[in-house]
Amino acid sequence: EPLWIRPDAPSRCTWQLGRPASESPHHHTAPAKSPKILPDILKKIGDTPMVRINKIGKKFGLKCELLAKCEFFNAGGSVKDRISLRMIEDAERDGTLKPGDTIIEPTSGNTGIGLALAAAVRGYRCIIVMPEKMSSEKVDVLRALGAEIVRTPTNARFDSPESHVGVAWRLKNEIPNSHILDQYRNASNPLAHYDTTADEILQQCDGKLDMLVASVGTGGTITGIARKLKEKCPGCRIIGVDPEGSILAEPEELNQTEQTTYEVEGIGYDFIPTVLDRTVVDKWFKSNDEEAFTFARMLIAQEGLLCGGSAGSTVAVAVKAAQELQEGQRCVVILPDSVRNYMTKFLSDRWMLQKGFLKEEDLTEKKPWWWHLRVQELGLSAPLTVLPTITCGHTIEILREKGFDQAPVVDEAGVILGMVTLGNMLSSLLAGKVQPSDQVGKVIYKQFKQIRLTDTLGRLSHILEMDHFALVVHEQIQYHSTGKSSQRQMVFGVVTAIDLLNFVAAQERDQK
């Protein structure tokens, strides 16, 4: 057995438009009618409502009807409940999964919650491996369901041993009777949507819809739904939504950006999952974080739909894509998950301010006199920076000697690579993860907040409520011999709460 199987392995699926269902090699399930009293909570997966979006479509000038398939009504709160249950049931049916076995899954959280929910009911041990950027709410729900959680670096490539995929496979090879159901490759993922989600949409719309818009992560949702719609409703256009920084969209030119990270969760990847059939997507749109969270908040405030950030991405694209539809036509959007997962993220004004998705003037509360002053007023001194090749031991000596707790790590040209902190280095040394002679590049981390000289002290204040420091950066445009230009970030300084307090105190003292 291989040590790991690539999540982007070539698909062996034989589905073709027009091929009889009787030739399918898979076990198919028909939607079942729910009894009045459910035998367990797993029976509350599927049969989610279709809700008309009344205000947002009109606000953006849509002539067509805009409908939302509300997947956050599933038992675990997301569309991923469907595939989690289906993968477990299919693994039980073919004898792969037996009582007492362990389920391991690399996930952005929602599939993990679905699997942990099913594992709690069915009696399996469950280990979820997820990147650090995923919300604390997801972690809390997983723990409450009895799952064990392993976190991995957000910026690790999918084929790196440190990625959530790599760590999951390492655990599988170490733990007896453990299984990775593997949402990236498992046919049960798109089949769950082909058999149930798509049929529900067709039934709820009486077979009449002209466009379907869905955000894409593993691709199982859009693949399964689109294949069924292509068979039953061939005139329906399928629109895929991919965040900026991901590479799922086609044509490839759409993916060209210097951005590699994004805040919206559960969609987009740096590889093409095996289950994603991009041939059934008629057109791709890219979405960005700001519009995703703005539209998610709009869905909550104006439509009462308590959905997550990827739902915002989907609707932001839908109001663009559906401009081509006329009166009497219908566009369906998939709202994948609930706001429950993001209470401390985009639902929080403070978080939105820190990330730059909300401006101070958007909030009406009274601010102190210094709130709208610029960061450049602080008069920061030149920063202490270190090269990635310097040793951890030497870096600790320098920081202690100069009285700093942290320093930016830059390359020879001064471009920011990340940050090192005294606390992080000492804990890594004590844990045996690094040696004093190791290069400081081994303990770089990139989960820090950046701020510009033109940003306000109010925004800085919000950042420092949650973080010990902020890195002050400025952009530099560099022209190359080819005539092309590129933008790079340079370090201007490091600012802490002490710097802000000293500035405010000094100004008030001078005024007296």
Score class of each variant (00 low, 15 high):
474 H>W: 04
419 M>D: 14
355 K>G: 06
337 D>T: 01
318 A>H: 01
279 T>I: 12
441 G>H: 06
437 S>A: 15
396 I>A: 06
380 L>R: 15
442 K>I: 15
347 L>H: 03
257 T>I: 08
298 M>L: 15
361 E>W: 14
486 S>H: 08
412 E>M: 07
460 L>G: 05
421 T>I: 14
480 H>P: 10
253 E>S: 10
439 Q>C: 13
255 N>W: 03
430 L>D: 06
296 A>R: 01
294 T>W: 11
377 E>V: 10
385 T>W: 03
243 P>F: 02
286 K>C: 00
467 D>I: 02
490 M>F: 15
255 N>G: 02
407 A>Y: 13
365 E>L: 10
269 Y>M: 01
364 T>C: 08
482 T>W: 06
366 K>N: 14
365 E>S: 13
369 W>P: 08
403 G>C: 14
239 I>M: 12
343 M>W: 00
469 F>Q: 15
450 Q>R: 05
396 I>F: 09
277 D>H: 03
374 R>A: 12
369 W>N: 07
393 G>C: 14
352 M>A: 03
401 E>F: 13
368 P>T: 07
490 M>D: 13
455 D>Q: 10
440 V>I: 15
375 V>S: 09
358 L>D: 08
510 D>I: 03
437 S>R: 14
325 L>K: 05
310 S>W: 00
312 G>H: 03
438 D>T: 12
464 L>K: 07
502 N>R: 13
409 V>G: 08
339 V>I: 05
470 A>S: 15
393 G>M: 13
383 P>M: 08
473 V>A: 12
300 I>L: 03
322 A>N: 04
239 I>K: 04
338 S>N: 11
275 V>K: 01
444 I>N: 14
406 Q>E: 11
239 I>F: 08
294 T>V: 14
408 P>F: 03
492 F>A: 12
320 K>A: 07
322 A>S: 07
449 K>M: 12
461 S>R: 07
482 T>M: 12
421 T>P: 14
422 L>K: 09
439 Q>G: 10
302 Q>W: 14
312 G>V: 00
410 V>E: 13
337 D>A: 00
303 E>Y: 02
360 E>L: 13
275 V>N: 05
264 V>L: 06
296 A>D: 03
248 L>W: 00
370 W>Q: 01
238 I>V: 15
370 W>R: 03
433 K>N: 14
480 H>V: 11
509 R>F: 15
290 E>D: 13
505 A>I: 08
428 S>K: 07
457 L>H: 00
280 V>A: 15
383 P>N: 05
264 V>R: 00
276 L>H: 01
329 Q>A: 15
419 M>F: 15
396 I>M: 13
287 S>M: 10
301 A>E: 12
425 M>R: 11
314 T>F: 07
486 S>V: 09
246 S>A: 06
353 L>N: 03
443 V>I: 14
460 L>W: 01
433 K>S: 08
471 L>D: 03
339 V>D: 02
342 Y>N: 04
257 T>R: 09
297 R>Q: 04
343 M>Q: 01
418 G>I: 02
410 V>F: 12
409 V>R: 00
405 D>M: 04
470 A>H: 07
471 L>M: 15
452 R>N: 15
340 R>M: 05
481 S>Y: 09
280 V>Q: 10
511 Q>A: 11
327 E>I: 05
321 A>N: 03
238 I>T: 09
336 P>M: 01
341 N>Y: 01
287 S>G: 11
289 D>Y: 01
389 T>L: 12
285 F>P: 03
479 Y>G: 12
442 K>M: 15
361 E>N: 11
402 K>P: 13
266 G>W: 01
300 I>N: 01
335 L>Y: 06
427 S>Q: 06
280 V>T: 14
421 T>R: 13
266 G>P: 01
447 Q>H: 14
345 K>Y: 00
475 E>M: 09
298 M>I: 14
500 L>G: 08
461 S>K: 03
448 F>V: 14
258 E>P: 13
388 P>F: 06
436 P>L: 15
299 L>I: 09
348 S>V: 09
245 G>M: 00
356 G>C: 04
312 G>S: 00
416 I>K: 04
450 Q>G: 05
448 F>I: 15
280 V>K: 10
476 Q>G: 10
445 Y>A: 08
465 E>F: 03
382 A>P: 13
508 E>P: 11
283 K>A: 10
286 K>Q: 06
330 R>L: 03
495 V>M: 15
243 P>Y: 06
305 L>M: 12
479 Y>P: 04
358 L>H: 07
507 Q>S: 13
394 H>N: 11
293 F>P: 01
473 V>D: 10
345 K>G: 03
270 D>P: 03
311 A>G: 04
507 Q>H: 12
309 G>T: 00
279 T>K: 13
315 V>Q: 07
